[in-house]
Design a binder for these strands. Sequence first.
RNA 1: GCCCCAGUAGCUCAGCGGAUAGAGCAUUCGCCUUCUAAGCGAAGGGUCGCAGGUUCGAUUCCUGCCUGGGGUACCA
Length: 741
Amino acid sequence: MSKQPAETVNENPVSGEDGVRSAIAAAIHQLGAGDGVTIDLRPLPFEGTWGVATSVSHALAGERAQQELTASGQLADKSKKEIKKLTSDRARVLSQEIAESIVASLRQSDAFATVEAANGYVNITFDANVVASSLISTILSNGDAYGAGAARTERVMVEHSQPNTHKVFHIGHFRNTALGVSISKILAHAGYPVTEATYPGDIGMHVIKALWCYRSFHLGEEPANPDERGRWLGQIYAESDARLEYRNDVLDLLNTVSKDDPHIATAIDRLLKLLWREHADTEDIAYLMGRFTTPGEVKEDELIDDGTIEAFWPILGAYLQAEAEREPVHLEIEGANGHVEPSTTPQERYDSWLELDEHRDWWAQVPAWKEAIKATFQAWEAGDADLIAQWQTTREWSLADFRRIFDELGAHFDVWFFESEVEEEGKEIVKVLLDAGIAEISDGAAVVRIDEKLGLTDEVYRTLPILRSDGTSLYSTKDLALTRRKFEDYHIDRAIWVVDVRQSLYFKQIFKILELWGFEQAKASYHLPYEIVVLPDGVISSRKGRAPLYDDIRDQVLQRAREIIAEKNPSLSAADREQTAWQVGIGSLKYAMLARDNNKIVVFDIDEALSFDGHAAPYIQYAHARACRILENAKWNRDTVAGPEGFHLDFGAIEPSELSLLQELGRFPEEVQRAADQYRPLLIANYAFELARRFNDFYHACPVIQSEEPVRTARLALVDATRVTLRNALALLGIEAPEVM
RNA sequence: GCCCCAGUAGCUCAGCGGAUAGAGCAUUCGCCUUCUAAGCGAAGGGUCGCAGGUUCGAUUCCUGCCUGGGGUACCA
């Protein structure tokens, strides 16, 4: 990996690397070898030392070993494996010899405290007091800006937080917002001018479904308390989905029974005879018979008469009830590949039936409802006044919730895009794409056959529909317009979409279509994918009521934080307790999301979320609070200590834990750059934890206030520098640093 | 079928081609008369999915395979 010269405002004294590099290069040159070899430098991996190591002698030794052995003819007639062994053994010896020569050469100057050769590495250490003073001066004079990179000119827009109106904000949305906020802050700290944008989904099929359900069944029912309207609307949406999916749910149950219940195969004959008496279609009965006795699923469009399932329904219910009441016997299903455990119990199957049975009348209505949905969507696009008014009212209920949640999460947006605002523009682009021959009409819908347009024979980009056959807009219709708007209206140079990984192909398609169209900035458009949040017992599903809502989780976490604070620090005022509870509670939730890499699924376990021990935000926050308390107790005032050109500190014989802490402090600026380059808050999350851990080591090993001068002042300055850096690191995660806990 | 991602300690996860692969949780045993015990120390726990390759050196890079997850034309 090529190392970018870190354009940081704050040079890391440890990796004030240029001097070290040129000294080593000179030494190698003296040996008469290896000009042009890359000199790697890394911090010494030993506790209690401050310096750098290079493995350059390994690389030189490898080359030389091969040359020597070849020249002496020892490699003749040897197998490949033997050659490798010989080379590797010889290289090991040589690398130590070379390291010793480099060391001897380096020792001729007194630029470094010590220079050693070990295991073929060249280890160089620095004078701790000199570097410590310089580092601490840098940190304290920069304060909040410590770790910031030099200003850059490339303007970046980060779009994140795209919750849908008319639906609830759950823990999955929370990950997105936490990630987006953190990435925005990291990029800004790294030196980029950042524009933060949100893009609520205020129109689309889900909104139409919610509106249809609201108008058809719940008009004028809204809750009196305005704070509950958003959530209530979410329930309306879930209901609309349940209504429209009713037939699928019924068929799912049928198929589950067919798969899980070993008795159904023998009972089905009798059950279908009962169905016969209900005058159901004979072909349907034969069809059901087949589906229940051989592998395969019942599908709605393969049934001839809508009434068949309705007639079969009560018969199935009676059967399931009887099965649920039987003595429980452990039964294994003999599958094609051996034993398969049933995924449901008889009782669960009967419970599902009972649940669905409450809405037995829905079956017949589903087709009409689906038509109504289409009509509603078209009415919205046609600007039906009544409907638009209801849309605006309900939309605002959700948006009010979002504004409150974003505020609680510290998400502050420079731009609010709305899907409804780019809809028309998107349709115009579709028209242009059709005229340009990039898009075409297929089965009535406008699509782009991307691979074909690129002349690819393999499936890579496939085909993306960009307008429905009934002329209504899709998500893609709108994203085409949004992308253009981002670059043209906001004059940015790079656009980042923080959207979950399931949409990776979709974004490749969108950007490629724009490229085909000749929109150059498509190349500066990046989808930043991240994995989804799941629950210990499966995926989040708001339909099935398995979606932990942000509001609920927040309440639980706040409550837990309040209890712990009351127990640990009873003298805290009510106001301080409340503030700290928010900082710790929300911080903890955010950290749980950010301390996992983007491409890792987060398993959200509420018990873990409520535990504030170990590798979690409170650990880091606690270190910060303790640092604050030490400074407070010592009546530390850095301004009376620092001279005009910074601190001249004397740690005396510096302790290993002090060195270790200082080294970590010095690493912050480069870690910010790395996190920005890779869009990875995880790096900062790990950094903050590691820094807190090293502060704890120091805290336990070295008394601060009780120590003698000049060590006392040196340690206080170190505590202050740690406090500043912990705060800055947490800030990049969007997590606050409490001063008391 | 094709594409993407993951596989490291009992569990959840770190690990910038380099020295003895690390944390947290869980288990066991210790530490509050000393700057806050949301803490600290100690112990046990590993064929880094498998097989090749590149390299002086591979958990890390490449190829193939296995297992799991996701995506794959009118949902977003």
